[in-house]
């Protein structure tokens, strides 16, 4: 590069960019250990009490035990989130993979229409999909609850799995499948022994993506969750609307850890292949 100052300016911008991305997260993590009961942003002492408090241990730092009684609600929200995410991921992964296989392997007249249909849920703004599902469920008398959330999540997660698996299929060596067929394997054996092992990283990647999006979805779930079927993001959103409390810091930090763990798992699977 002939212009070192230009390069330095770019590097400076890059570092500021990284700081902008990470600073808010680091601030929350650090201040989740702050024992100041009144102003969360004035550092006082190191404490674990907020973490104990969200699991129902009363803290000595503050008189208000507002959130201690909601520990049950928090845990049930976590349970709901996991139930929804696991069910949705399983269903969306199977259906999305089947669809990707069909689109990859066969040529038929309606194919462009199908691809369009599959991309649509991904570009549809969350609020539109959430409203549409709400109106649909109410109009047809479907009770809002875990089932409605699961159905709602599947409508767009099938597409995400489809895209990830399709990308993997596109990079697959198709001569192996032909060889397997030539050697007398039936289609099922070819699929199980040749195709599946090759696209497995794509399927795992798609499943992890679906899981993390389902765990995180706020807008669509917000509209179609029933009273007793709150998920974790909706629960935290509700807490935030009522006011900011130190306990939310601790919950946020735990959720951060969880998300990073899933992302690391995804990276591990990608690296291994």
């Amino acid at each position: 590069m002939k212009h070192p100052w230009l390069k330095r300016l770019l590097s400076l911008h890059g570092l500021l960019f990284l700081a902008f991305v990470y600073a808010p997260i680091i601030i929350v993590v650090v201040y989740s250990f702050n024992s100041h009961p009144v102003n969360m942003m004035v550092w006082k002492d190191f404490t674990f009490d907020w973490y104990l408090s969200i699991f129902g241990n009363p803290t000595k730092l503050t008189e208000q035990t507002l959130y201690v009684e909601s520990t049950d609600q928090l845990l049930s929200a976590v349970k709901n989130s996991l139930t929804v995410a696991v069910t949705t991921t399983t269903f969306a992964t199977i259906v999305g993979t089947a669809t990707a296989l069909a689109i990859y392997r066969y040529h038929f007249k309606l194919k462009p229409f199908y691809q369009g249909l599959l991309y649509m849920p991904m570009v549809m703004p969350d609020i539109v999909l959430g409203i549409a599902l709400l109106v649909f469920f109410i109009n047809f008398g479907v009770k809002l609850g875990l089932m409605s959330i699961i159905i709602g999540h599947c409508t767009f997660l099938i597409s995400y799995v489809f895209v990830v698996v399709s990308a993997r299929l596109a990079g697959m060596d198709s001569t192996l499948e032909e060889a397997s067929a030539d050697l007398g394997a039936n289609p099922w054996a070819t699929f199980r022994r040749v195709t599946l092992p090759q696209i497995l990283p794509g399927i795992v990647g798609g499943a992890l993506l679906a899981f993390i999006i389902s765990m995180d979805d706020l807008v669509i779930t917000y509209f179609i969750a029933g009273v007793d079927s709150t998920t974790l993001p909706v629960f935290i959103y509700g807490m935030l609307r009522r006011g900011v409390k130190p306990e939310i810091n601790a919950i946020a930090t735990l959720m951060l850890l969880f998300s990073f763990a899933i992302a690391a798992l995804g990276l591990y699977f990608r690296r291994r292949n």
Binding site: P24, I25, M40, Y237, V244, N249, I262, A263
Partner: peptide, 26 residues
């Protein structure tokens, strides 16, 4: 590194900014 934080829950990321931008915030 740049994409990693975006696997973190949306509501958590916005909460960070609530903490920073409040009058008694960071």
């Amino acid at each position: 590194i740049i994409t990693l934080p975006f696997f973190v829950s949306l509501v958590v990321r916005l909460f960070c900014w609530v903490l920073i931008l409040r009058p008694s915030g960071f």
